[in-house]
Computed example of a mutant assay.
Amino acid sequence: MTDPNAPVTVTPADDMPASSAKAVQALALKHLYIAWVRFQRRPESMRSFIGYDLLYFPPPYAAKWAKPFGYIRQAASTIAAIRRHKPDVLWFQSPPTFFAHLLVAYRALGGRRLKVVADCHNMGLDPDVPGNFWMKIPGTIPALNSFDVVIAHNAAVGAKAAGLGVRSDRLLVLETRPAPLPVDETAGDPVPQVILVPCSYHDDEPIEMLMEVAARVPDATFKLTGNLARAQSKNYPARAPANVQFTGYLSAEAYTHLLTNCSLVIGLTTGEGIQLSGANEAVGAGRPMVLSDTQLLRSLFGDAALFAANETAPMAAAVQDALSRQGELRQASRTLKDKRERRWRLQAEACLERLVP
């Protein structure tokens, strides 16, 4: 597998060109995107349009007590990358929210003058997300307001960010682009039935309920991806039925293969304002979806997904219904992919236009 820390450049020529003159001007700048994770589909999906180098600096240590030392290493790697690549525009993924403080300090100490785009996931802007401690770090909003663009991933979180004091001339909504993944329109229903459940194992995901659902759908295999150590710390694997597999983190290639060949993608959250990256991936891959019934998820994926309350009986019924309607739901996801792509391009160009006079 390719080293995830190695920069990969994809130019805008690989994608349909921007239509706005100012957006074209912004694309001519040198862009760099940095994320302190192993892999993230969102920046991967955007880079063929924006053309940035994409660097991952994942946590170097697994133990919680070692995280502060890991942050120091990641910060040093980030500053070294900025000096090495000399970008005109730096995009960074938040959280960690103190990434913003790092960049403020870098610029104050005479670092390279560059434009900054803060790509804020929900925990980087929404203090109401269960278990979110990132917004408790002092000075986060003033730091964000010192940058050129602050991105919220949906309108609901954008409204919360505005309420917290993020400046209106900085704040923009840029939804997650449907993943540009291959879609086989001739394929039938996969056999055996495999259900992909992308997980973080954070407090907003009702995993106990999901395991009860799996027990009611014994003919399907449920594959739960994500942080295996966190799942084990909550004793999920020991309590799971036989048809539930905890895969841990997969390589990008293995995860994409699972995503593009599964029968169904399930996305779970108890929180409003959480848009679920797994649902965006399912749309990009043209896969059927069953999602938690929240107002935001209905607004984003209502044309393609089945929805259910976070309770065992209705969720199990929705899963069984989706498995019986896979062809119909695959087509619905493909149609939604085209619609979401057009909307995303308009939002992306508005973001780029903020970067030039």
Rank of each mutant, 00 (worst) to 15 (best):
G327H: 11
R325Q: 14
L300F: 07
E349V: 14
P357I: 04
M46P: 04
A231H: 12
A252Y: 15
T186Y: 00
A214W: 06
G278L: 04
D169E: 09
M123W: 07
T97I: 00
A76T: 09
Y56V: 12
S94A: 14
T11D: 01
R230A: 15
L224D: 05
L196S: 02
A66H: 02
V8L: 15
G278R: 06
N261C: 03
F49N: 13
A220P: 01
A23K: 02
P43R: 13
M1Q: 14
I79Y: 09
G70T: 01
Y61N: 03
V117M: 03
L291G: 02
A105F: 02
M123Q: 13
L210Y: 03
N122I: 02
M211A: 00
T270W: 01
D189F: 01
D53M: 10
V290Q: 04
F98A: 00
E328F: 09
A156L: 11
Q320A: 11
L259Q: 10
L90Y: 03
R216L: 15
A254G: 10
A6F: 12
A18W: 10
S20C: 14
L54T: 11
P4T: 10
P206V: 03
D128E: 07
L259C: 13
A28D: 12
N122W: 00
D128Q: 01
A332I: 11
A215C: 01
Y71F: 06
G327M: 11
P218G: 03
R83Y: 02
P178H: 10
R47I: 10
E205I: 05
T176I: 14
V129P: 00
V213M: 02
E281S: 13
S77I: 04
L164C: 04
T247F: 01
T335G: 11
R83Q: 12
N154H: 07
A317E: 10
Q232I: 07
W36T: 10
S324R: 15
S146F: 03
L352K: 13
R354T: 08
E281W: 14
F98L: 00
L144F: 08
R112M: 05
G70W: 07
P218W: 06
G273W: 06
T221F: 06
